[in-house]
Nucleic acid binder design. Structure first.
Lengths: 205, 205
DNA sequence: TGTACATCAGTGAACGCGCGTTCACTGATGTAC
DNA sequence: TGTACATCAGTGAACGCGCGTTCACTGATGTAC
């Protein structure tokens, strides 16, 4: 099902419809959560009948897997791009943190699909783990490149430890914000986030 | 439906069945997530027919609301009890943090139901907000009682700011752990958590 | 340029399933005399 | 202590709904000669 002609006029059409399917799927997840993802509903929204979707997708679960992997890949790209920022490690890490936050808030459902409450009964494919490391890698690289002022470099263990703290602190703010748990609390999440980033990165050269 | 005889033999029986309904509901949420909560499934598990449950519960949504409020209340009790610890504010805050973690990991689905990805399409009752503050209050009180070494007290603003940082850092670790995102990562979550608690609390008297 | 043919996107009917909720009812249980 | 009665927990049938998925099919579209 997945791999058929991808060139010529038919191939172009296929890819176009396929990408609309994915788009509608995201809309549904955003509106009603991953467990409400429904092929029939997608088909209806696209003005088609449900069986037609099986030309583009192997099954409901397969679609969900594709969406999750796409989200991972998307975020990994964002992190890697930000890691390309010129300048010292500290600036790079700050850039990564900011890029992740922007992406997470723009794509709250995607972020929560990756790092939020696991979709019940759904088993992530092994590929997901690899992609999770791809997101994490630029952070570890950043901390490995520079140690606290004075030390030019970090040990791998220290870099790993700091990366974990970096990750959990950022996730703490982002996930609460993305899930809407700050509303009505007189919190400035952007400032809070910036402060948390600083807290991990402040003593780097 | 909700309020009927609660004394005498019939009342006792009612409360017993009622609490079994809630128990089974939690089991379901733990197994398949909040959106899979089903009255028919609960009834089946209890060896009853579904309509019988309407003696104990007004509707599916009402049951979900009760469960969420119960989780809030439970965690608030835990936090308040820990806040009763003898000694300086720093010890109290550490005790609160530890108690929250233990509760959150023992009741991962409950914790995620409160602080995780919102249940799609479900609107939390206003009462939930009040309970959320009840959980937060002991932390704020802890930070208000003592300032950084030297200062005997904190301003309310500073106490609030530190409480927020406390909260987001703890949530960062707990939520990732509860959702299983540390598995296969060679992380010691307990140590990481303890370090994060220290990071906020270290400079208190 | 025109025709025959193969490809393949999409349809419509059907399957078995589980859901929340209502309704009129049965029959056991507790209570009042 | 015994009987009549009210209470009320639980049943079974039924409703309309949406789900994933299969299957044989139609008919438009692109391609090869």
């Amino acid at each position: 099902v997945a791999e058929q002609t991808s060139t010529g006029p038919r191939g172009r059409y296929r890819q176009q419809v396929r990408s609309e399917v994915l788009e509608r799927a995201w809309e549904q997840i955003a509106a009603a959560g991953a467990s409400a993802l429904s092929l029939k509903a997608i088909a209806k929204q696209m003005g088609m009948t449900a069986p037609a979707l099986y030309r583009y997708v192997a099954s409901r679960d397969d679609l969900l897997t594709e969406l999750i992997l796409a989200a991972y890949r998307d975020l990994a790209d964002v992190a890697e791009t930000a890691a390309g920022t010129e300048g010292p490690a500290r600036a790079r890490l700050t850039a990564i943190a900011q890029a992740i936050r922007v992406w997470a808030l723009t794509n709250a459902h995607r972020y929560l699909l990756i790092y939020g409450t696991p979709v019940p009964g759904y088993q992530a494919p092994p590929e997901a783990t690899a992609l999770a490391s791809r997101i994490f890698a630029p952070v570890v690289a950043g901390f490995a490149a520079t140690g606290p002022a004075g030390d030019p470099r970090s040990s791998p263990e220290q870099a790993m430890r700091r990366s974990l703290v970096f990750w959990t602190r950022l996730h703490g703010v982002i996930s609460l914000e993305a899930a809407g748990h700050f509303t009505g609390m007189a919190v400035d999440p952007a400032r809070l986030y910036a402060g948390e980033v600083e807290s991990v990165v402040a003593d780097l050269r």
